[in-house]
Amino acid sequence: MRAFIARRQRVGLVSREAPLISNLSVLENIALIGQYHGRLSRRRAEAMAREYLQRLGLEELADRRNPSLQEEQRFSVMVLRAAMLEDSVLALDRPFEMMPALGESRFIYETIGKVAETRRECHVFDYFLNERRYRRGSAHEA
């Protein structure tokens, strides 16, 4: 993290410490970043957010709010929100803490892969004790 700060690079953080805003819908949560940083109009930002949701096949979640989402859905929406931040590094902070029931990292890699074209860099930070879960996911990917 300190390296990003030293490089003055924006960080699109996916973390339990940065939850979705609960009084906004999924679509508004993602669009907010575009409206704020890209100075986009509401319509333009929401169209962009809807396109992102379609990419992950989550368009039916657009009008739902944070408490009604399942863990994987919440994670995917948080990845999309982070991907809306232009010229930023995607940083995943302990993804298995957000999805404790997930046995391996395949879902995480697949989700990142679907938004990969918008990101130059992606970093995952996690405890060593989860290393095996990442290895299992990588093996599946291979």
Partner: peptide
């Protein structure tokens, strides 16, 4: 109540993280 709930839920933290 809304602002207090946002503070407890760390949603104000989210806004800070995304430089809003």
């Amino acid at each position: 109540a809304e602002i207090a709930v946002m503070k407890v839920n760390k949603e104000l933290n989210t806004l800070e993280v995304f430089q809003i």
